[in-house]
Design a protein around this nucleic acid. Structure first.
Lengths: 195, 195
DNA sequence: TCAGGGGCTGACCGATCGGTCAGGCATGCT
DNA sequence: AGCATGCCTGACCGATCGGTCAGCCCCTGA
């Protein structure tokens, strides 16, 4: 053994991603990951401070993109916010569907961990944007249904090609979102509506 | 102490429902439930054979309704199947949102338990019906997004009145479902293959 | 009065969890 | 040669899990 550190590090990361996607974060033990890599549990903990650090490194790219999306959403209102949130989140969810899959319903508890402190607020802002910043219960419910449904669908349809899944989801979201009556900075230009 | 058995039985059931809804099935220990009731863990296991039996009894009413819905769906095709699935599932999800909440993403592992053997097949049939029994990926993706989203929304909006939540969800589903081209109002026992 | 039984409990069990630690084993630098 | 460093490991730790068991308490009915 005694391979380059980066090599084993990456192998552990990949194995963890695979196991987490199948049995979830809590449902996967460090022993499981070590077995999949072919090393000891102590080796896993040599490369990563603890189990949470392993998850954090695994989620880092997705979180970075989520932060970018959050920045892009600031200032947008009404239909513009809805469209930006829809396109941005669908793209994010499709690209990082493996990362989303491994959170499968463990969001609430995982969010309590310091590494994911801001995600809850970001996801709430995202939901708010998708609702066109409307206070109507119908709009807020629709936004949550779509966000949760998209996440679940991306985790489920792992074998569907990226672009096919993305276009299907975007079509669905645009159809499901009721237009919000908000003052747009610019009037709704003739968007490409696929009949 | 030494109350009537049915009394303690019900208290444990109620406490378990409360704890499961907050921390999930796996995230709640028998000790937690016992602490909430104010009895010992052994008492919980005196009234219920094991943790799984506790969950099974908690879910029994919801599962019974789900089975009824499954029966009502058999034979329906196209838009009729979509409408029946939508109305039936929205109503079920709203009525049993506490039961749905406590499954939060633990569906996959929980379904492996014998008490929930048939639920997976039922939910697949439900998804199929909501897709109008279409094979198109777009229709199947839409159906899954809606089913998962509705479940999550019901688990989240616990404070919204039943009828308000139900009507909002139904409006959303009807808007989100693209009409399927199946003009048969009643099934003439032919295979329902579109195009 | 007293035996019997239902409700309930503390103590305990084996398994598994995340995490620690001293040390083995190469390899490379001096 | 001798030492240091980095990668890795088995053994072990305390905590917690679901579950078992002998036995206590109290009510009931003969």
């Amino acid at each position: 053994m005694a391979r380059a550190v980066s090599e084993t590090h990456g192998e552990i990361l990949a194995a963890a991603a695979r196991r987490f996607a199948v049995t979830g974060y809590r449902g996967t033990s460090l022993q499981d990951i070590a077995r999949e890599v072919g090393c000891s549990k102590a080796t896993v903990l040599y490369h990563f401070a603890n189990k949470e650090a392993l998850l954090a490194e695994l989620m880092a790219p997705a979180i970075a993109v989520l932060r970018d999306l959050d920045d892009q959403l600031t200032g947008l209102t009404g239909a513009a916010a809805q469209e930006a949130a829809a396109v941005g989140f669908v793209d994010l969810a499709v690209r990082f569907r493996r990362e989303i899959a491994l959170l499968r319903g463990e969001f609430p508890e995982l969010l309590c961990q310091p590494a994911f402190a801001h995600i809850q607020q970001i996801s709430e802002r995202l939901r708010d944007a998708l609702a066109g910043h409307s206070d109507r219960p119908g709009a807020r419910i629709t936004a949550l249904v779509l966000l949760a449904g998209i996440s679940e669908a991306c985790a489920e349809f792992v074998d569907v090609p990226d672009d096919e899944l993305r276009s299907a989801l975007l079509t669905l979201v645009r159809r499901a979102l009721e237009p919000v009556d908000a003052p747009l900075p610019q009037p709704p230009t003739t968007e490409d509506k696929d009949s």
